[in-house]
Nucleic acid binder design. Sequence first.
DNA 1: TACTAATATAATTATTTACTTATATAATGA
DNA 2: TCATTATATAAGTAAATAATTATATTAGTA
Lengths: 105, 105
Amino acid sequence: MTETTDSLVETMKLLADKTRLTILALLKEKEMCVCDIVDILHTTQPNISQHLKKLKNGGLVLETRRSQWIYYSLNMDDKPYLQGILKELPSMKDELNKLNPNCCK
Amino acid sequence: MTETTDSLVETMKLLADKTRLTILALLKEKEMCVCDIVDILHTTQPNISQHLKKLKNGGLVLETRRSQWIYYSLNMDDKPYLQGILKELPSMKDELNKLNPNCCK
DNA sequence: TACTAATATAATTATTTACTTATATAATGA
DNA sequence: TCATTATATAAGTAAATAATTATATTAGTA
């Protein structure tokens, strides 16, 4: 049940960035496509794309393609301690309401 | 009950380093003085001292001086989610047994 | 097939940060 | 007071990394 210190450090590095932590907070609400996330976080698409890649490689998110959109979802399966961390973050519900209705349509 | 994202990021940065994470794993077992930690981690005293300063500033450890030694102890009071993270780390009990008996004496 | 939209990748740059070496401070004891 | 031990601080360097800009890939559609 105990992880190696090295792999835990790698996971903590993923969480030690505001953009990535906010992405995880968003995905806690619901799965989202890249354009949704770019919309909310006010940064560039390549920036989000690179952060998502890191989160995916670290096993924190899963991706599914549905036609031209790629949806990302939170994966806490093998990291139960994530729940306690993400619980600390403020709710992102307000941001979800502001989503561009033309995104992923 | 929810922290700001910024302050959570700062805490995650503190955890995203192998030396600091190992220090926390050690302090989970018992409070220790600087020379104990230097002994176990095979690095230099200034290096440990600087890591301890960061952990202290981030509120993750407390320090107490007892004559010429300064003891550090884990402080999870306002960060309950730390428990779940540190639980993932391997036990440090073996390292404690190897401690130099002349340290802090 | 050509065009557009969504997303990923590559290369560059600037910032952050861990570690090292040298030095300073603080406490103890002769 | 002087010497020693424990710890902290300062300055410099090298490595890691987030963001930007440009370009590539993939899917859908006319």
